[in-house]
Computed example of a mutant assay.
Amino acid sequence: MRYAYLGPAGTFTEAALLQVPGADDAERVPAANVDEALAMVLDGSVDGAMVPIENSVEGGVSATLDAIARVDHLQIVREVLIPISFVLAVRDGIETLDQITKVSTHGHAWAQCRGWAHANIPGAEFIQASSTAAGALGLQDPEQHHEAAICSPLVAHERNLKVLVEGIEDNVGAVTRFFLVTRPGPLPAPTGVDKSTLIVPLPEDRPGALMALLEQFAARGVNLSRIESRPTGQGLGSYFFSVDIDGHLAEERVAAALTGLHRLCPDLKFLGSYNAAEGITPTIDSHNSNEAFVQAREWVAELLNRL
């Protein structure tokens, strides 16, 4: 097996990939960005790609949301949650915080440590890096001139970097969610604790358009655990929604909701059903159970037999 992930080695994305059974022994291929990782999946050079989708502090990762929405023939087969903690790694010779004039990291990491940085290194300039690991590795590159990097403890340990301060995140307990994306294939079997992800283009910009879409879920007792609007790029007022729902396509209520949604939105994109990493069993009212849907369908079938 070959898997792509956002590199270089030591990123939180690689840590997420290592939670996939068998990934320890698989070939792990670093990618420069989400588009490159997904392109490797599409052309068959890797079997899957691990990409970040949202953070409990910063919300959705727009690069991933947009990339997955643009590309067809992809499927989400697994989600992974990674607790996020950051360290401040520095170049050799840096002994105190007041020696730091430039600090490099990924934008999402900077946002999660901004409060600490403003309080402890207020004069330091933020240098955008393609990943936390890339900023950290720059400390070993004489061509780069930042004195510090905000990165994961994993990359600091693996690269033998000098850590000046540990646990610099503003929100202790922050978590980032990742998706393992493959080419389309059989759905993972339902476990009773599942999620499904959809891309829902807004059919038209009119009063009640979004309400009509949401009613399809509410009427079948399907909970939305995440909904985010993103521009399609086709002009102002043109949006799609990235949606996670509690449940598996194999469940009657979920299939019924998607059936109703497809009538309103034929361009609906189903990205997959997969085990929910939180392990929280959703509450389902008895009238939205599989049995209730089956009984209702059989009742209608009996009525139709009178024709």
Rank of each mutant, 00 (worst) to 15 (best):
Y3K: 00
A4C: 02
Y5D: 00
Y5Q: 02
T11A: 05
G22A: 00
A23Y: 03
A23M: 01
A39N: 08
V46G: 09
D47M: 10
A49G: 01
I53F: 07
I53Q: 09
S56L: 15
S62L: 12
T64D: 00
T64A: 02
A67I: 03
I68N: 04
A69F: 07
L74Q: 01
R78K: 14
V80W: 04
S85Y: 01
A89D: 05
G93K: 01
E95D: 10
D98A: 10
Q99H: 04
Q99G: 03
Q99F: 09
T101Y: 09
C113Y: 03
H118A: 09
H118F: 07
H118N: 11
N120S: 08
A129V: 12
S130G: 14
T132P: 10
G135Y: 00
D141F: 03
H146K: 12
E147K: 08
S152W: 01
L154H: 08
V155I: 15
V155Q: 01
V155T: 11
L161M: 02
V165Q: 14
G167L: 00
G173F: 04
G173C: 07
F178Q: 00
V181F: 02
P184V: 00
G185D: 02
V193G: 01
D194V: 13
D194P: 11
S196E: 07
S196K: 04
I199C: 11
I199G: 13
V200M: 08
E204G: 08
D205T: 15
A212K: 14
L214I: 03
Q216T: 14
F217K: 14
A219V: 15
V222F: 09
V222M: 05
L224I: 15
E228L: 13
S229T: 13
F240Y: 14
I245D: 07
I245S: 10
R253Y: 06
A255D: 07
A256D: 08
T259I: 04
L261H: 07
H262L: 13
H262P: 02
R263Y: 12
L264G: 08
L268G: 10
K269P: 04
L271E: 01
S273E: 02
N275Q: 13
I280H: 07
T283G: 08
I284N: 11
D285T: 09
D285G: 13
S286G: 06
E291M: 15
A296D: 13
A296Y: 05
A296F: 05
V300M: 15
N305T: 15
